[in-house]
Computed example of a mutant assay.
Amino acid sequence: MISFSPSTSSNSDASKLTYSVLIESEPDGKFSAVVLGLSDCKSYGKTENEALENLQQLLQKRLQNSRIVTLEIDSPQTDNPWLKVAGMYKDNPLFDEVLADIEAERRKLDAQMEEYYQRIDAEDGVK
């Protein structure tokens, strides 16, 4: 399902739009200003301010015969592959034992790594 709603508001602050603008110094010494995401909205000027003013006028002219709407699209439904196996061992009487074995192995590996890092640090201290 696709739906959209026109952006209408009587609040003057809500009717203001904000754009991110990239200002670049051109090789000829002039400046360019382009609206990020709207590469066709680009202007030039002798100064940064002039380039921005020209861009503002361009945007205002473009928006005179336009309107902004919010487009909402439903995402396609996909099955999560993990849901097929989630909880399949919850009633297994050995589950807690397996978890305990995994935790013990993890602690053993962590201790080995800690010992390894201490040995590396000690060797670095000798150099």
Rank of each mutant, 00 (worst) to 15 (best):
M88C: 03
E115D: 10
V35G: 00
K127D: 08
T70I: 15
K84P: 00
T18Y: 12
S12W: 13
Q118H: 10
N65F: 04
A100L: 07
S5N: 12
A14H: 07
S25D: 05
L58E: 06
E48N: 06
E48G: 06
S20E: 15
D121W: 05
D96P: 10
K42D: 12
G125H: 14
L71F: 03
N11E: 09
S20A: 13
L38N: 06
Q56M: 07
E123A: 12
N11D: 12
S9H: 01
N49F: 07
L38K: 07
Y19A: 09
A33L: 01
S10M: 15
A122T: 10
A86R: 11
D110L: 12
Q60I: 13
Q57G: 04
T47Q: 05
M88S: 03
A111W: 03
V35L: 02
Q118L: 10
L99I: 09
A14Y: 06
E115I: 07
L71C: 06
L22E: 11
D74S: 04
F4D: 07
P81V: 00
M113W: 15
L63K: 03
R106P: 04
S25T: 05
E24Q: 14
L94Q: 14
I102R: 12
S43G: 04
V21P: 00
S12A: 13
E50N: 02
M1Y: 07
D110I: 07
L63A: 04
Y89G: 09
S66V: 09
F31N: 00
Y117A: 12
A100S: 10
V34M: 09
K30R: 14
N11A: 08
T8D: 15
P81W: 00
M1W: 07
I2S: 06
K90P: 08
M1I: 06
K42H: 15
E123P: 05
E53S: 09
V98R: 04
E72A: 05
S75T: 12
Q60C: 10
V35Q: 01
L59I: 03
E105S: 14
